[in-house]
Design a protein around this nucleic acid. Structure first.
Lengths: 221, 221
DNA sequence: CGGAACATTGACGATAATCAAAGCGAGTGG
DNA sequence: CCACTCGCTTTGATTATCGTCAATGTTCCG
């Protein structure tokens, strides 16, 4: 069952987006079937940091504790379709299809690897490398779910969103995107991102797909 | 069985510390019983980012995939004692003591929360707040394992290590530590850290212990 | 006592943030 | 169909935070 309960993307910037709070009664194991979302936290001063991109196939609640009003939010970054797995179905799955339970655990590792890689990126790469790295990661993840069409793919993030992923200001994000464009590496227009020279982009980013592969090998098999 | 295989802390800065590589044959589920370690990654340019502090009781391998030469290292930050759980013992535990398996899963959530919080810190807090926040987190975690003595605790990290945790340079880290000292919030001397005014430090850091509690409630029970 | 790691200081430079304004473009209503 | 909005992107000027380089102290330990 896929619900379109978040179909309309809401507008204003700070904390006013359509939000599903962890622990909301209506959310037993949501899985994204279409569109992008993000895990994020809003700080006192109103600034926002995104620390997870949820693409189709990703589980919103994965690492969260069901019965805790977790301190982070899930926000929609595009129109979104979500499927719910009921708790009882879930228990049944775990009993009758242990393989799936294993896959889930692999998936958790996958998510953890991404978190770690983001820390490395934000902590030690400059704005340009960081931007490039994120693009490489997203492209790679989209490739896994067949959402890359040739050398381009849908990229619904606004530059403000992207800034909150990268830990930068929107203005600086804009400038670095332009640098990437002027270097002939990408074009980004109309919510669509094209990578013209993947290997050069990956080299610039210091992107090493190995950090994602282990989880993937298991996920795919 | 506790081995002292990493007892001597080695010296030089880059990648030359005593290191246990993920996937090393000798490491089936190591658990730290004394001392501190860290997960980290070294980049091309030689810079290092730490993305996880391992305190007594923490599992080195937790989120790693056993049969993958993971792209990150574990380094000792002090002399270290480690206990190993053999794979077969592990399987037995999972069968005969499901509660422990559950606890482990809670622990994974705990680790994930910390990773997320680090991203928020590095991405959106300035150097001073970030430093304060890390101190609050560490203090809190040490409190859980009864390693806080009054208002002070052992803090074996070098300022270089701390810089690699915070995503700063050693010089800047030094300056921010001095700011914290001059504000009368902490003293740090001889591998021992004293927090003089916890609530003020937490306010400065924007520290909200809620983000760690959910996992903890389960862990303790 | 000597040496090495670690901590601290100062001067200077680079990267990123801030502030403010202007341009663009898709969707809306007249 | 055009003009109007509103959200989003782009630009420029300026400032702040943090990084770099290099030297000097300090502590710890054999």
């Amino acid at each position: 069952m896929a619900l379109d309960f978040l179909s309309a993307r809401s507008r204003s910037y700070q904390a006013k987006r359509h939000v599903v709070r962890h622990g909301d009664p209506l959310s037993p194991f949501p899985i994204i079937t279409d569109g992008w979302a993000a895990r994020c936290q809003i700080l006192r001063d109103g600034s926002r940091q995104i620390f997870g991109l949820l693409l189709p196939g990703d589980m919103c609640h994965f690492n969260a504790n069901p019965h805790a009003q977790s301190t982070h939010d899930i926000v929609a970054l595009s129109s979104l379709q979500v499927a719910f797995i009921e708790q009882r179905d879930w228990r049944e799955i775990k009993l009758n299809a242990p393989d799936i339970a294993v896959a889930i655990r692999r998936y958790a590792n996958f998510e953890s690897s991404i978190l770690s890689a983001w820390i490395v990126s934000i902590g030690r790469r400059n704005a340009l490398e960081r931007t490039a790295h994120l693009i490489c990661e997203v492209r790679f993840r989209l490739e896994l779910i067949n959402q890359v069409d040739g050398d381009s793919f849908a990229f619904p993030l606004t530059q403000d969103d992207l800034a909150d992923v990268l830990g930068l200001t929107p203005v600086h994000t804009n400038r670095k995107l332009q640098d990437l464009r002027q270097a002939g590496l990408i074009t980004l227009h109309g919510k669509r991102l094209t990578v013209h020279d993947l290997s050069r982009l990956e080299r610039l980013a210091g992107f090493d797909r190995e950090y994602l592969l282990p989880g993937v090998r298991e996920l795919v098999s």
